[in-house]
Amino acid sequence: MKALLAAEVYKLSRQGKTYYALAAIFLIEVIVLFSAYFQGSSIIDILLGNLKQSFYFEGTLLNGNLLIYLILNTLWFNLPLILMIIISGTLTSEYKDRTLQTIMLQPVSKWQFILSKYVVAIIFTVLVVFFMALTSFVLSYSIFGNGDLIVYIDTLNFFEPKEAFFRLLWAFASGTISMVFFSVTSLTLAVIFKEATKTWIIAAFFLILSNLLLKFDFGNAWVNRLFFAKLNDTWQYFFYFEINWNQILLNSALLVGYTIIFMGFGIYLFNKKDIG
């Protein structure tokens, strides 16, 4: 198993598209950061518009913390899209290049092979989110400084810099679970569809559908709470004034559960299906 994992890490690190993807993520982050800076002042104006009548404002809210929060809002769509392309590509390229048949001629069990792909996909996703978080914090704080974070969720919430930093860190951690879910799903889709273009289209469709269903009211409280699409914005729970840890833990546990189910389904299918 260790050798399989090492081989998967080697393959991922040797393929050029991994670095293109990382560069794309970084570029998107920089673009989002600067567009968020210009968008930020209008957002603050809208949020504080009604308060102008009663209050004077001292200090600025257009700072690194607000920009990281805006990056989080935007990147949770862009990032899984790129992740899904790279991760599903690790299997579809093996189907395309027929290297899979070569590997299967070796004394390697099918389930161990696909499990190692899933494990490497999860590690890679965690590292990418860590890279994204690190660059977001460094870029935002060094260029736009620190300060209070303003967020509107039911109420207008203000967080002091230390508190904001802590909540943003937790939001990245929570978002990582979502990203892992999408990565694992894309690999399962690759097992089903085998062909790269088909897999990418279905993966993108799955991501778009998940985003649409996030705001969709199913008319049933249980479905609204437990359906996987509804769990992908758990990171936002860190920006309620009082953090509902129980809800976050439940949502995270459910999402981990869905990830395991999707992964188990992928392993089962890969074992059952013919390689060719």
Binding site: I46, L51, S54, Y152, D154, L156
Partner: peptide
Amino acid sequence: NFEMERIKIPLNYMAKDV
């Protein structure tokens, strides 16, 4: 103690579905 208008936020600025 003062009177003030409630905040009216356009829907696209709501951080979460409310």
